[in-house]
Write a protein that binds this DNA or RNA. Structure first.
Lengths: 332, 332
DNA sequence: CTGTTAGCGCATTCAC
DNA sequence: GTGAATGCGCTAACAG
């Protein structure tokens, strides 16, 4: 490249990195270099540049499952933000498995990612702990960790759950059960706590059961049990939409009808929740907003390492559709 | 690192790259180095290594939209395959926009990605053409391009469409309309062609209309028009599930019922298609299979640059649910 | 068995 | 206004 244009590599470097003005390169020389570069399809080697400058312009993002609808929206938003700032997105799906997460994080750190978006935090997360000690800027999303010094962008789990329980209470329900998510995930914990508080405040006993994963299968399994053991249940507050979908399956399977016999409310408002049978009443969290904020917060943290740690809450909003209805007459 | 362990950097390099045996490093030395590395949390700098070896272990993947359900499954599969081979995934969402795609591809090439998974091919795709000329291994997925010399993994669009039309013919439908996708996307073209052929073979006139994007809104818009201009239509063959969903919306909006008045069949069998109202009859393409094959094919192409170009067809399968039914009596 | 040397492609400091 | 020299952290060829 440099030879073809009859200049030194450093001159090429100056022109191609936009320092033509500052470096006082002749307009003519600059033009020639750019012409040759275009002709040869020459592109600066990002790897070499990164080695030299110490900046890779790469952000790593760790998600439980890219194929998960709700998370895909977050990934999309983060990708948009990063692309606009010339960052590339190194994405890893861990299947919510600690070992995978560890391996992926190590790889990202080895790749000199400038920051990490970490969406698989557990309560006692060794990977996250190691990350926090390592000095690479990290922003958690969806779930917080127990680790101090790390910023996070998470749904307003408590407020959202309060909206859900209030809605059911207003509909006259008294036998309300919570189908919670994995017990070492912050969102499950907060949603559970808010549920328990709300029920206690209403002087009601709020039964709680826990799924090991956020899947329809788990929702089905748990609700099946629930319906057998506590048949007086008239409403289910699920920790997320997928669990809610499984709950609805169990209800129909038992010969009952949702919402006539049992109401179900989800959390997240995943895409197409309005098209399910029945359309799902749920607590809406803007995925785009969440991903957008997380990526922006990370970028700011990279720019200013001394930025104070913060936890942003993405607002929750009740979306009433058809999976919830008035308590059946027999129970009111 | 090297200093702490009192050895030369090259010795560290040998141990950490697993050449301890071949390089005849004393077990003792190797152990000490590994111990020190563990203690210091030392990790080899992938960037420097890539610069030296010319291998980045990075694969770029370009998708129209990560948040799209159907594609997310493909991304997931590809990610799994790559992770198993120690590759990292550089992901870019282009919103199916040529400029974005160009910018992202340039960035990936600059990052010395060893191969590209390209899922946004258009018929006359300048970006792809440039890519093919560039020497970086590329595998197209979902859509083929007009560019020779590039392998691809795509759905069996023709066979799938044939299954769809046959199904409607069997149900007695005669006034069948095709709601096609963008006209410069290979899958749209093949699905259209198969539709036209099947209808001609049945001695029927097959009307065709085209969406500019694969969205529910477009499906709605087009079907709305269709229902006004060709009210005798009793069945719609949509080029994908999202268009089908929009078609169903238009049908309901017009006061008609799907499938009683108008049947709708989609394509892809996107996640949750079985839970929509009504559950969607569609042509199933395994997303995981498609992503899996594409990633594996790329890996093989990277290993053997002279590998003959090939186009793999992922089989299509008819999934009958409740959005299709017998032709209404008035038309039979 | 391990140290020495060289160089990947770039950006930067200094020289002229 | 541009060239020359240096080094980012690593691996590979060679030396001993």
């Amino acid at each position: 490249m440099a030879k073809v244009a009859h200049v030194h590599v450093s001159t090429v470097s100056r022109v191609l990195s936009g320092q033509a003005e500052a470096g006082r390169i002749t307009a003519e020389t600059a033009q020639r270099i750019e012409a040759v570069a275009a002709e040869l399809g020459y592109r600066r080697n990002t790897v070499a540049r990164a080695l030299r400058t110490g900046r890779t312009l790469v952000i790593g993002m760790v998600v439980p499952d890219v194929a998960n609808l709700y998370q895909a929206g977050i990934t999309r938003a983060a990708g948009d933000v990063l692309a606009r700032s010339e960052y590339s997105l190194l994405l890893a799906s861990t299947d919510d498995d600690l070992e995978h997460a560890q391996a992926q994080v190590v790889a990202m750190l080895g790749s000199q990612a400038e920051g990490l978006l970490y969406g698989v935090a557990r309560q006692d997360d060794a990977v996250l702990q190691g990350l926090a000690d390592g000095g690479t800027p990290v922003v958690l999303f969806n779930r917080t960790g127990q680790v101090p010094g790390v910023s996070a962008v998470v749904p307003d789990d408590r407020a959202g759950t309060r909206l859900a329980v209030e809605h059911l209470l207003d509909l006259g329900h008294r036998n309300i059960v919570h189908v919670g998510g994995p017990e070492d995930v912050s969102s499950s914990i907060h949603r559970l706590a808010a549920f328990v508080e709300m029920m206690a405040a209403a002087d009601l006993h709020g039964e709680c059961r826990f799924a090991e994963r956020h899947t329809e299968e788990e929702g089905l399994r748990i609700t099946r049990q629930l319906l057998t053991e506590s048949p007086e249940t008239t409403a289910v507050v699920a920790a997320n939409d997928r669990l809610a979908l499984g709950a609805i399956d169990a209800i129909e399977e038992s010969g009952r009808v949702c919402p006539d016999d049992v109401s179900v409310i989800g959390f997240n408002d995943m895409p197409y929740a309005d098209r399910f049978t029945p359309p799902l009443t749920t607590v809406r969290i803007s995925q785009y907003d969440l991903g957008f904020r997380a990526a922006n917060l990370l970028l700011k943290t990279i720019e200013d390492r001394d930025r104070p740690v913060e936890t942003q809450l993405v607002p929750a909003e009740l979306v009433v559709r058809a999976s919830t209805g008035p308590v059946p007459p027999a129970f009111s």
